[in-house]
């Protein structure tokens, strides 16, 4: 087990990093900290490119003497994507803060449930009044 981990240390590091990132994304209640995940995502995508070059012929069938340039493109794209997504998410968070005055998504959610309950109560009241009139 340990030996396998040592051989595949790229994979192991990548998995740990992405695990931390994913846990952060799902467990963090404070929105700002959520975007740490994206940094981890960049690491994972970086994994795809160099490993094959170093591991040589075992997994790659059609590599002559050239290396597939596309995965490098994938890494770059992944990084660009995570930057732009982060920017977009931060912009949304800013709006969120303007609307709710807090960065905590849970309190906002509970606020939403309360709003909904009030709306439903109002709707039920309307039906009652309607019944009485008719």
């Amino acid at each position: 087990m340990i030996a396998k981990l040592l051989i595949n240390h790229y994979e192991a590091v990548a998995v740990i990093l992405s695990g931390i990132g994913l846990a952060n994304l799902l467990l963090q209640r404070n929105l700002i900290k959520v975007y740490l995940f994206l940094a981890a995502k960049g690491w994972v995508s970086e994994r795809a490119a160099p490993i094959l070059l170093k591991d040589g012929s075992e997994w790659v069938m059609d590599v002559d003497k050239y290396v597939n340039p596309i995965p490098a493109g994938l890494v770059l794209t992944g990084i660009v994507v995570s930057v732009s997504v982060t920017a977009f998410a931060l912009a949304l968070t800013l709006r969120f803060y303007e609307k709710y005055g807090s960065l905590n998504i849970d309190s906002a959610l509970s606020q939403m449930t309360k709003e909904q309950e009030i709306l439903e109560a109002e709707a039920a009241l309307k039906v009652d009044i309607g019944d009485n009139i008719s």
């Binding site: 994304l25 995502k41 994972v44 995508s45 997994w59 069938m61 994938l74 977009f88 968070t93 998504i105």
Partner: peptide
């Protein structure tokens, strides 16, 4: 939109990890 974005990013993350694994296994995109 924020909830949607967070869930979507989890989705993208999983897709990206899987693409890496598939590339590892097959050597093709």
């Amino acid at each position: 939109a924020l909830r949607y974005l967070i869930m979507s990013l989890v989705g993208s993350g999983l897709v990206l990890i899987s693409i890496c694994l598939l590339y590892d296994l097959t050597g093709h995109l």
